[in-house]
Structures are given as structure tokens and as C-alpha cells.
Amino acid sequence: MLPGAGRPGGSPPPFDPLDSPVRSVTVKPVSLNGARVRLDLTILIPHLGFLAEGALLTAEVCALALVGSVLLGMLVAIARTSSNKWIGRLAFAYVDLFRNVPFIVQLFFFYYGLPEIGIYIDAFTTGVVALSISGGAYASDAIRAGILAIDNGILEAAEVSGLSKRVTFTRIVLPIALRTSVRPLGSVLINMILTSSILSTITLNELTGQAKIVASDTFRPFEVYVVLLVVYAALTYLVSIGISLLHRRLNRDLVEQVS
């Protein structure tokens, strides 16, 4: 029945909730047994294993994407520091593009676009590829800074010793650049862990995806997401401690300079 279609002059038709047009939707807060809902984290205990599966998937995705982005970052950093102008410009265009377009747009571009051109890969692979490409842009900046920080004297010494350009690069420049850029690469990794939560939008059930399922199962979104927030913060905190230790270990012979 349409609104206002009642009989003219007669009494208004009885209210029928199934028939009435929806005017406003109010979110009814969930309360169990009518009691005030209090913060009760124990309801999450049965779901811990389920969440841990998601955390494992997040770790896998991030580990693979870290490897991918460091490899890509090294190639792009080499290209950006090369003496060939056009290679440098191309590499800069890549970095500029992937740093200035939101990750979710890149992700949808790959996830919906690749099947169009006949490449059928699952959400996991798409996620790793997208994270690697986007992370590679950031990693290349970190590695490039490491390369540019190398003292010219070292390069001259290598040249005088008769090392070829390739050997100088792989045996001298890259090891030094990589170990001085451990810290910035670490912040790339932390960013990647945070960004990987976006993969839940392409049906990849990593930590955030699993938490979404738990939230809709238990009707306790507040508890679930508060815990998730703290878990992510703790995770990135632990990673940053690990990176500091690694940085100190790799640069232990330069202690007075790096400290």
C-alpha cells in the first residue's frame, strides 16, 4: 500500500509494519537479555584459534610481499641511480605513480582487471602481487637513499682494484646500501602489515577478514575490533623492536657512526 493512499474521509488504514515504506533506519544496539552490555573479552576465547589462522595468513602475505618489494625496490633503486636518464625517469614514474594512488584502487585494478586480460589468479596471489608492487615503490626510496649515502671513495677504490661495474654493484654497493637501509625498510614492512588489512576487501580472510567474521558471529563488534586494534599495535611494536635489533647487529662495526 502506498503512503497517503488511504480511503478519503475514512479512518486511516491500520499500520502494517511489513507494508510501510522505510523512512529511517535506526541501528538497534545489541544487548543480551536486555542487560547493559559491558566490555567482556572472554567471549573471544573460543574464536582465538580462528583469529590466529588469520594472523598466520597476514604473516605469510607480508613475508612474501616483503621479499617481493625488496627485490623490486632494489631493481628500481638501481634504475633510479643509473646514469641513463630515461631509465631513471621511468623508475621515477613508477615510484611516483604507486605512491600517489590509493592502495585500494591499485588492488581493485589488479583484482578486477587481471581476469579481463586472461590472467586468473586467486585473491592470495593478487594480494601479494599488489602489496609487493606498492611496497616496492617505498622500498626503492629507502634503498636508493642507502645507495646515495655510499662514500665515493669506496666506489673509486673498487674501480682502482679493477672490479667490473656489475661486481662493484652486487658485491659492494648493494650490501652496504641494504644494511644501512634496514631501518627505513623496517618501516616499509610495518606499513605493509597495516596495509595488508585492506586485502580483506578482496575476500582474502587474513586477520581483519577473520575478525569481521567473528564480529558478525558474536554480535560483539566493539570487543572484537578493540582487541584487533591492540593486536595490530602490539604486532607492529614487536616488529619495530626486531628491526632495531637487526639494524644494530648488521651495523655493529659502525657503532660509533650509527649508534
Partner: peptide
Amino acid sequence: EILKNSPVLVQLFLVFFGFPAFFK
């Protein structure tokens, strides 16, 4: 520190799904 070190997506979910359910 918490806001900086957690995904914005999770913060959004907390505010959009969690707050209405908890604070009514």
C-alpha cells in the same frame, strides 16, 4: 601510538560497527 600503529580500516570498523553496538 595506538592510532598510528593500527590499520585505519580496523579503526573505521571499530567506530562504525563497534561504537553503535557498545555505546548504543
